[in-house]
């Protein structure tokens, strides 16, 4: 069970059970829908900006424990960040999820998000963990469309 317990850590199970910022943001100025056609996971990300700074961020949707926990933790970690900082963080998270060499050194300063590092042992689940991040990115680019993990 070692790889499994690394994947389903207490923090992840907790975020799955009681996701943070799990609601619609009425006065959001950026929003996007994300969809994983493989498993049917759906997420909507709402962002309220204050200039370059992410003032509020929330999400809604349905998905597995990994995608829900990842979305929940993403909203916590992005609140207060600038668009540029968020982009840089996504880059590092993505490297951690896909197990890119050298990513581990960076996982230390990813804070809470580092609990998702177990995902890289489960290639089929990387898309679950990255769905909300892709959706956030789509919202920020104001593509207005749907983000997909494909």
């Amino acid at each position: 069970m070692s790889e499994l317990s690394e994947l389903y850590q207490e923090v992840i199970l907790d975020h799955n059970k009681s996701p943070r910022n799990f609601h619609k943001l009425k006065d959001a100025d950026r929003t996007a829908d994300g969809y994983n056609p493989l498993c049917g996971d759906k997420v909507t990300v709402y962002v309220k900006l204050d200039g370059e700074v992410i003032r509020e961020i929330s999400f809604e949707g349905s998905g597995c424990a990994i995608s829900k926990a990842s979305a929940s933790m993403m909203t916590e970690s992005l609140k207060g960040k600038t668009a540029g900082e968020a982009e840089a963080l996504f880059d590092r998270v993505h490297k951690m999820l896909t197990g890119e060499p050298g990513a581990n050194g960076g996982a230390a300063d990813l804070g809470k998000l580092a609990v998702l590092s177990g995902v890289c042992q489960f290639p089929a689940r990387v898309k679950c963990a990255s769905l909300s991040w892709h959706t956030f990115q789509a919202a920020m680019k104001k593509a207005g469309g749907t983000a997909s993990t494909e």
């Binding site: 389903y8 424990a65 829900k68 689940r125």
Partner: peptide, 14 residues
């Protein structure tokens, strides 16, 4: 109840 099928699939796979 309370568990997404994807998570069932991953744990069963192990």
């Amino acid at each position: 109840e309370g568990v997404h099928p994807h998570d069932i699939g991953t744990i069963l796979d192990r």
